[in-house]
Amino acid sequence: MTHHGNGARILIIDDEPQIRKLLTVSMHAHHFDIYEAATGEEGILQASIVHPDLVVLDLGLPDVYGMEVLQRIREWSNVPIIVLTAKEREEDKIAALDGGADDYMTKPFGMGELVARIRVALRHAAQSPNEPIMRFDELTIDLAQRAVELGGERVRLTPTEYEILKLLANHAGKVVTQRQLLQHVWSGRRHESESHYLRVYIGHLRKKLEKDPTQPKFILTEPGIGYRFVSPD
């Protein structure tokens, strides 16, 4: 079943009819164009035919495991993908994010939050990565100059702190896993197990960027998974 509005094209890959119905009704109210698939194979096919602007993918599909659907779509497309996963499977969330998902929601989820996550992912996909200056409230990151300013004042960051901030800001609104950060910042060297390094650097960044480092508004912790940079707008 397909509901056409005039907004972004959203493909829902989920085997539960009641969840598809709930998502379709809610998203149609936000003028999204909705396409549905009940199996992984059908979802992969639809993704190639419809070229959606965003995919909502349930990891627990009856035929092909959701992670495989994710990998197969990722082979040819950078479309934003939000995965739906059962609450207790933290390793699923990490595997999905490391496998190229943009975000995750745990079932049961609130529709308001899912729609907000969809808007963030669509906005992020629409932003040109060639823009050399990123602005988040009073924080400015100049990628060409590798310069960071907070409220007009230059913030002195070490090269490692800058790389962590740049990666998080480039994925604003998305969760970045500890592994993704460690691989990016300490590329090639085997630091994957050393997540305590990361906590130390995140602590330094918060001291330099946050008014109250214990109540961060830019760099949020996703417990057991990684970090999410949010733009407090």
Rank of each mutant, 00 (worst) to 15 (best):
1 M>P: 06
8 A>H: 01
12 I>A: 07
14 D>H: 12
15 D>S: 12
15 D>T: 10
16 E>W: 13
16 E>Q: 15
17 P>L: 05
18 Q>V: 13
20 R>P: 12
21 K>R: 11
24 T>N: 05
29 A>H: 08
34 I>D: 00
35 Y>E: 05
37 A>R: 02
43 G>V: 12
45 L>D: 13
49 I>F: 13
52 P>R: 09
54 L>M: 02
55 V>D: 00
57 L>C: 04
60 G>F: 03
61 L>S: 05
68 E>C: 00
77 S>L: 03
83 V>P: 00
87 K>A: 14
88 E>D: 01
88 E>F: 00
89 R>K: 10
91 E>I: 08
95 A>S: 10
95 A>D: 12
96 A>H: 11
97 L>I: 06
99 G>W: 09
102 D>T: 12
104 Y>K: 04
107 K>A: 09
109 F>W: 03
113 E>S: 09
115 V>A: 02
124 H>T: 14
124 H>Q: 15
124 H>V: 11
126 A>Y: 04
128 S>M: 11
128 S>A: 07
140 T>Y: 03
141 I>P: 10
141 I>M: 05
148 V>G: 06
151 G>D: 08
152 G>A: 02
156 R>N: 07
159 P>N: 05
161 E>V: 01
161 E>Y: 06
162 Y>D: 00
169 A>S: 15
174 K>Y: 05
178 Q>T: 08
178 Q>L: 08
182 L>C: 06
184 H>N: 04
184 H>T: 03
184 H>G: 01
184 H>E: 01
185 V>M: 09
188 G>D: 01
188 G>K: 11
188 G>A: 11
190 R>Y: 03
192 E>I: 15
193 S>T: 11
196 H>K: 15
198 L>W: 15
198 L>R: 08
199 R>F: 11
200 V>A: 05
202 I>H: 00
210 E>K: 07
213 P>S: 09
214 T>A: 15
216 P>D: 02
217 K>Q: 15
221 T>H: 11
221 T>I: 06
224 G>F: 03
228 R>V: 07
230 V>E: 14
231 S>K: 14
232 P>N: 10
233 D>P: 14
233 D>Q: 14
